[in-house]
Structure formats: structure tokens, C-alpha cells
């Protein structure tokens, strides 16, 4: 009796190991936490300068983006991210990597139709849906007079 698609789906699920959830969560927590601690340390450092608190925070984001860009270029970032998972994707490091990696990758197709058009391959949806969500929330905030 030939195996049906439904039966095979069950067989395949049984034969396919899942990602190790608990070790992955622990690594994501530790590395993601470390990224945040580094960010906080930069904020504290920049706060020592004669600048506004908001400017210190902006500088912190810029610093993390710059570090990620360099580590991506040196092929070190993917090695960390392989273990960190959400720990490096969720902070601003993930966004920076999502921009730099296609920029590097598609150089061979030229500056305009390669790097230029493929730059937002991964980050594009984040920007598109992030802006849409902000728009919807803006309307809600306006209607319910949240601010």
C-alpha cells in the first residue's frame, strides 16, 4: 500500500530533528543580553560627553550599527549570529547586518542594479511593515487621544 502524502508528512516530521529550542533560547538570551549591555555601556559613556541624553542614545545606535557592519564585512557576524539567533537579529545589529550583507553580496551585479536595488532585499519588508504599523497605531492614538 503506497504511502499517502498525509502519512508521509507524519513520517517526515518524525524523522526531522527540531532545532534545539532550550539551548537556542539560552544562547539568544545570553548573547542578546550582552549586545544590550554593550549598548547600555556606550550610552553611559556618551552621557559623559556634554550632549543631550537623546543624542547619546542615537550615538549608541550608530556605534552598534558600525560595529555590526565591520563584523559583517569580516565574516565574523554570521558566526556569532549562527549561535545567537534572535539575540543578534532583534537588536539593531540584526537590521545593520540585513543591510550590509546584501550590499556586499550583490556588488557583482553592479552598483545600481546590484547593490542599489538589492540593498533592501531583507530589510525592505521590515521598513514597509514597520511604517504601516506605525501609521495604524498613529490613527488609533489620534482617535483615542492617547497623547
Amino acid at each position: 500500500m503506497a504511502t499517502t502524502g498525509k502519512e508521509y508528512g507524519k513520517m517526515a516530521k518524525k524523522a526531522s530533528p527540531d532545532s534545539p529550542l532550550i539551548p537556542d533560547c539560552i544562547k539568544a538570551f545570553l548573547i542578546g543580553g550582552a549586545v544590550c549591555c554593550i549598548g547600555q555601556a556606550f550610552t553611559e559613556l556618551y552621557s559623559l560627553l556634554p550632549i543631550e541624553k537623546d543624542t547619546a542614545k542615537t550615538l549608541t545606535s550608530m556605534t552598534l550599527i558600525a560595529i555590526t557592519a565591520v563584523l559583517t564585512g569580516l565574516a565574523v557576524f554570521p558566526k556569532i549570529a549562527k549561535h545567537a539567533g534572535a539575540g543578534t537579529i532583534v537588536p539593531i545589529t540584526g537590521f545593520a547586518n540585513a543591510m550590509v550583507s546584501p550590499a556586499m553580496e550583490f556588488q557583482s551585479e553592479g552598483r545600481i542594479l546590484g547593490t542599489g536595488s538589492k540593498l533592501f532585499t531583507i530589510a525592505g519588508p521590515v521598513i514597509a511593515y514597520g511604517c504601516s504599523a506605525a501609521f495604524v497605531y498613529g490613527i488609533i492614538a489620534y482617535i483615542f487621544k492617547l497623547y
Binding site: N97, P102, E105
Partner: peptide, 17 residues
């Protein structure tokens, strides 16, 4: 990888399968 998946330097995780 370029054709079927994501840029090489993208920091993602692959499944055990």
C-alpha cells in the same frame, strides 16, 4: 545560497534538516 536562499553574510540560523 545567493540564488536559492539569503546573502552569505546574513546572520541567520539554519535548521538541523
Amino acid at each position: 545560497e545567493r540564488q536559492f536562499r539569503l546573502p552569505l553574510e546574513y546572520g541567520g540560523q539554519r535548521t538541523p534538516t
